[in-house]
Design a binder for these strands. Structure first.
Lengths: 253, 253
DNA sequence: CGTAGACTTGACCTGCGTCAACGTGTGTGG
DNA sequence: CCACACACGTTGACGCAGGTCAAGTCTACG
């Protein structure tokens, strides 16, 4: 277990290195974080909405949704998280008002105590900066999500979400052409603030127009350019601080 | 100018102290941040949507909206910011994907260079933590905003927004009974993802039911309990890390 | 006292929700 | 290896919240 934990932490470090510069000592500090693994069933809620948790969750396989809930029980998913991401890193610094976590598929995670995260961040300012920046990346995604839900119609909304996930599942800023999204239409509905019924209809329209297919919870992009255009998708908010630009900016410190 | 800048920075520090513990040396480091003042007209866009800025804006008077825009020009406001808050602190660490800033009323701000913020944060880990936490507070507000826009009907949406602003304009976790909101119905519409026309109708309904009045851009809460209940408003996401609980948690570090 | 921006109101339209029924696939137990 | 169940997906008919268009009215300010 301990062996593979380092591998998973390394994946997280690699993610951070896309946007931040960390010395090998700083990287080692992250790799040395204590973890405890957990396995979750599909559809399991593993952090309750108003829970004050004392650890953050690094996803090692599967997909998890962060959500909030109205009293009526209606859910709004605020983010999807995929392996290599921490679903609730923000809780390390502010463990409330964060929403619940739900495993959408069968999922495995590593729990990392807030205490350890904060100690490491306090000791290595560059680690704090990298984690802080990662949280801000998350916030940028949430802003687009809000735009999506507030201002776009059903098909455009879905198209935008699919574009986002394609880039995030992809490598080097290139969209994945097909990937296991593993999400039911109802879970999709929670994310885009529609009914599962209307998601179904919109999905059909997208399929018939030849842009994307979602079959057996596998998403296949047939025509990236048209999908991105239709979904009003500009990947800048995901990618703009990646690559050479990053180096330049960080040398300022 | 320099004299009053310290006063304004002190107001920002006071805000941070609600949720974080800072030594007097750390507080002084924040008070010593360089600033340059600016005055803005009502309705002025002073940070463009895709601008990569090199400073953050501390609001000293007025109200500013953070927004994003579709190609069609439709806006979605993602946050309102009031005096004492930094409208784009997150840009200090990730200066893109942040959206534009718009002065909703006549507004004055202090610009603080990112470079200075990051140097101070790197030097004083507790300052970094406090700023990071402030960003996470912001993110928690944004999450509720997303819920609002995604899952509530027009009147409930407005009621929730008004409750949030009342608490934020208030003191010690008590809602302000009345305050200059200074926002036009069209700007409100951008925030709650409705039409200004529908905002108008919903506002009338809220007024007729005796919960709130918005007149001459001044908001008066007639019946807080009913408004909060109707708006499905729970102030925990704003307040839960304030007060004695905070002390306990921070001693861990 | 005139003008421009904000607010107000009405009539009509439409995207999405609701309700209700019916397929379809996958995994379980006999 | 079949059958049965249960969760998920699909489709249709209909209603309504909120959008759109168009016409005023108010208010602040020159």
């Amino acid at each position: 277990v301990s062996r593979s934990a380092v591998v998973e932490l390394q994946r997280f470090v690699d993610r951070l290195l896309l946007r931040s510069v960390l010395s090998s000592e700083e990287q080692d500090a992250i790799l040395a974080l204590p973890t405890s693994p957990a396995a979750l069933w599909a559809k399991e809620d593993f952090v309750r909405v108003n829970e004050v948790s004392s650890y953050s969750c690094l996803i090692t396989s599967g997909i998890v949704g962060r959500f909030n809930q109205l009293d009526s029980g209606v859910r709004q998913t605020l983010a999807f998280h995929i392996p290599g991401e921490m679903a609730d890193l923000h809780s390390a610094v502010r463990p409330i008002g964060v929403g619940g976590l739900q495993a959408l598929t069968e999922t495995t995670i590593l729990r990392i105590p807030h205490r350890a995260i904060r100690e490491t961040a306090a000791r290595y300012p560059a680690v704090a900066e990298a984690l802080w920046r990662d949280c801000m990346y998350d916030a940028a995604v949430l802003m687009q999500w809000t735009m999506n839900v507030g201002r776009r119609n059903s098909k455009t909304r879905l198209a935008h979400l699919f574009c986002e996930m394609a880039i995030r599942f992809g490598k080097d800023g290139q969209p994945a052409a097909a990937f296991e999204f593993g999400v039911t239409q109802e879970q999709l509905a929670d994310a885009v603030a529609l009914t599962s019924i209307h998601v179904n209809r919109s999905l059909r329209a997208l399929r018939e127009s030849g842009m994307v297919t979602v079959e057996r919870r596998r998403l296949t992009i047939k025509d990236w350019d048209r999908l991105a255009h239709y979904g009003e998708f500009d990947p800048a908010y995901l990618l703009a601080d990646t690559g050479p630009y990053r180096q330049k900016r960080l040398l300022e410190v």
